[in-house]
Simulated scan of single mutants.
Amino acid sequence: MAKAKTGDILSLIEIDHGEVEQLFEKIQKEKSAKKIQELFSQIYQELTLHARAEELVFYPAMREYEETEELIEEAEEEHNAAKILLEEMKQLGSDDEEFKTKLMHLIESVQHHVQEEEEEIFSAVRGSMEDEELQALGQEFQEAKAKVEPDVKTASPAAR
């Protein structure tokens, strides 16, 4: 998947959101258990990498602003719920009914999180931060993703 090389943090996060949404669409249409497992591995890696980078870069920067602090706390709780689901799903076979139920819950949860983040948090951030700050955070976000990527790949279902 194409990754942006430059950009402000909000644009980079939106790109990640779009990539995960495409993976969700593919996995919902897929019938092959093997292909579902491959797609889940990609979803696991993308969501884990994205969440860790947000938690390392984006969320700490947002805590400095009163307008976003409460929103960030809720977003972190949503990240934690998604992480738990991902870990539970990692232990199940893709043809297991519980896997399918958890997948639907994961998709709904992530879509809700994305909507809140893009509508509420991004709006508050744009009102609080200058373009230069958003660009600098974008660079930090990409560096954080690159730094944690080897650990995420090692922990992914495909690495088993």
Rank of each mutant, 00 (worst) to 15 (best):
E97K: 12
Q135K: 13
Y65L: 11
L39A: 01
E76H: 03
L85Q: 03
A82Y: 02
L103N: 01
L106F: 01
K31S: 13
Q115E: 14
E55L: 07
P60W: 11
E108C: 00
E69C: 04
L71I: 04
I121N: 01
M129A: 04
F58M: 13
E38I: 00
E149R: 15
H113F: 07
P157G: 07
H50W: 04
L47E: 00
E140T: 08
L47V: 08
L86V: 09
F24G: 03
Y59K: 13
Y44H: 14
L92K: 05
S32H: 06
N80P: 00
R126H: 11
G93K: 12
A146G: 05
L71D: 01
G138Q: 05
Q22I: 09
I107G: 02
G18N: 14
R126N: 10
K31A: 10
A144G: 06
L137Y: 04
E132L: 11
G138N: 06
E21T: 10
Q91R: 14
Y65R: 15
E98T: 09
E74Y: 09
I72L: 07
G93A: 04
S41G: 15
E140D: 14
A124D: 08
F58D: 06
E143A: 13
A155M: 11
L86T: 05
E25K: 12
E76D: 06
L49F: 02
A51W: 01
M104L: 07
L85T: 10
A82N: 05
K34R: 11
H112P: 06
L106E: 00
T101Y: 02
L103W: 03
K35W: 02
E69M: 06
V20D: 05
S123A: 11
G18F: 08
L134W: 05
E54S: 11
E149F: 13
G127P: 05
R126K: 14
E118M: 11
I107D: 02
D95N: 08
I27E: 04
K147A: 14
E25W: 07
E76G: 01
V57G: 09
I36D: 03
Q45W: 00
K83E: 14
P60M: 11
E69K: 14
E19W: 05
K31T: 12
V152R: 08
G138K: 04
E21K: 13
F24C: 02
E133A: 11
E76Q: 10
E38F: 01
